[in-house]
Design a protein around this nucleic acid. Sequence first.
DNA 1: ATATTATATTATAATTATTTTAAATATAAT
DNA 2: ATTATATTTAAAATAATTATAATATAATAT
Lengths: 152, 152
Amino acid sequence: MEHRIDRIKKQLHAQSYKLTPQREATVRVLLEREEDHLSAEDVYLLVKEIAPEIGLATVYRTLELLSELKIVDKINFGDGVSRYDLRKEGAKHSHHHLVCSECGSVEEIEEDLLEEVEKIVQNEWGFQVKDHRLTFHGVCKQCQTITVSASS
Amino acid sequence: MEHRIDRIKKQLHAQSYKLTPQREATVRVLLEREEDHLSAEDVYLLVKEIAPEIGLATVYRTLELLSELKIVDKINFGDGVSRYDLRKEGAKHSHHHLVCSECGSVEEIEEDLLEEVEKIVQNEWGFQVKDHRLTFHGVCKQCQTITVSASS
DNA sequence: ATATTATATTATAATTATTTTAAATATAAT
DNA sequence: ATTATATTTAAAATAATTATAATATAATAT
């Protein structure tokens, strides 16, 4: 954990931003809940536990900043809120998501499945791809089994 | 145009919804501006031109309804607003988008480039894919040429 | 050390986007 | 005609995000 905080600190410094206590607390929450897809409000409530004096606007600003620096990805699954998803160290792209329409769970795919597709987009549309957002909507493994056993 | 309105009317009737004048006006705007990616507010302003008495809430409700029936896709490019994108007739999936970070333009790819990827997701993750959202962020053809000529 | 400047944060208010409510109107069914 | 159902309107409510002004913190120059 400390190692990653340190790396993020360096990334901030490289753009002459500081890792203030509030920013550090926010990053810690994101690291602790790496598997989750927290909204700004979610992050705010969790950060308040370790830094009770923080303001919601600061959390928004921090997330926005981390987003610009590509430390987190701002994603949107179609409910009204933006969610913030920490990138793996050194990852060039936002990872993919599997959203289950039955139970609402969100799985992550870290493997980049779009390399071939991006080549096609690059060559056939002349579009220079920098990043992507890919989300699949459907039914997760878990919910498929439930449905099957329920219907028998 | 009339043909497509008729089809949509049937789709609504199939779920026992009616194509009211307000809904028809909204659909007409979406058909006319099929290439665009309008926000609810955008749609509202355009619908007002042909049906001035319509309310914003009705537009929201209509878009939500069309969205449920998979006649339009509600998409989100990371600015704060939802945008509504008419599906091609008979299309099973939301089409792909190319968002240019230089000029903000949005191109569409109607071809489904994800068939192979979906097979992998299905087989290796056991996730039953129903739909997808794929957006590429990068630099469009147009802006690439501008950048090249400007830097020479 | 101290004054000066720049940057960041807080609390609150304001803004924007969207949804809900309640009353009125229209449509369809009996 | 009467009743039930669906839809719209306008207003109010809610949710998400951003702006503002005051304060605090840190960085630099004196």
